[in-house]
Simulated scan of single mutants.
Amino acid sequence: MNIWMQLEQAEVGQTRSLAAVLDAIPWNSDGLVAAIAQQHDTGEVLMLAWMNRTALEETLATNRVCYWSRSRQQLWRKGETSGHRQSLIEARLDCDGDAILLRIEQQGPACHTGRANCFYNSIQSDQIVVISAPQ
């Protein structure tokens, strides 16, 4: 039985080795997994990014969120240049390990556009409506 099935059937409080779970994550062909950043106290979804194993391990070790930048092909320590850092409060994996939820404390706007979050393009009928301004 794979580790995801074991976790599905586990009782509350049961544990598994972090290393074993990281080994079992179904990283995509580029070695990445989707990571959703959510403000821990409000539940607001701030952004979606990608993590490789190194970025995830660094995030867990430092409690400062680190992603993999697909455009720059390098680690991206959120806020390193802008100051808009993300502090990790809790990390969760979904039921089959192909997405990570990062419950974070966001400092400043999360989006590179200066908006509070990256989800400012609302699909309304046959139009896209911009629903927030840069801060």
Rank of each mutant, 00 (worst) to 15 (best):
M1I: 06
N2Q: 05
W4L: 03
W4V: 10
L7W: 07
E8P: 00
Q9E: 11
A10C: 08
V12Y: 02
Q14K: 07
Q14V: 11
Q14A: 14
A19H: 08
A20M: 09
L22F: 01
I25F: 09
P26S: 06
N28P: 08
D30T: 06
V33Q: 13
V33W: 11
A34M: 08
A35V: 14
I36F: 07
A37F: 03
A37N: 12
Q38L: 01
Q39D: 15
D41W: 03
E44G: 05
A49E: 03
N52P: 02
N52V: 12
R53H: 06
R53T: 05
A55P: 14
E58L: 15
T59Y: 02
A61Y: 04
T62W: 05
R64I: 00
C66Q: 11
W68T: 01
S69K: 14
S69G: 12
S69H: 07
R70T: 14
Q73C: 04
L75Q: 15
W76M: 04
R77S: 09
R77C: 00
G79R: 03
G79P: 01
T81W: 06
T81F: 03
T81Q: 11
H84C: 15
R85N: 13
Q86E: 02
Q86A: 07
Q86R: 09
Q86H: 04
L88Q: 05
E90W: 01
A91R: 04
R92H: 08
L93A: 08
L93C: 04
C95H: 07
G97L: 05
L101F: 04
L102Y: 09
R103W: 02
R103Y: 02
I104P: 00
Q107W: 02
Q107H: 14
Q107N: 13
Q107Y: 12
G108C: 10
G108K: 02
G108E: 09
G108V: 13
A110N: 10
C111V: 10
H112Q: 05
T113Y: 05
A116D: 06
C118R: 10
C118D: 10
N121Q: 14
I128Y: 07
S132I: 07
A133M: 14
A133D: 02
P134D: 11
P134S: 15
Q135Y: 13
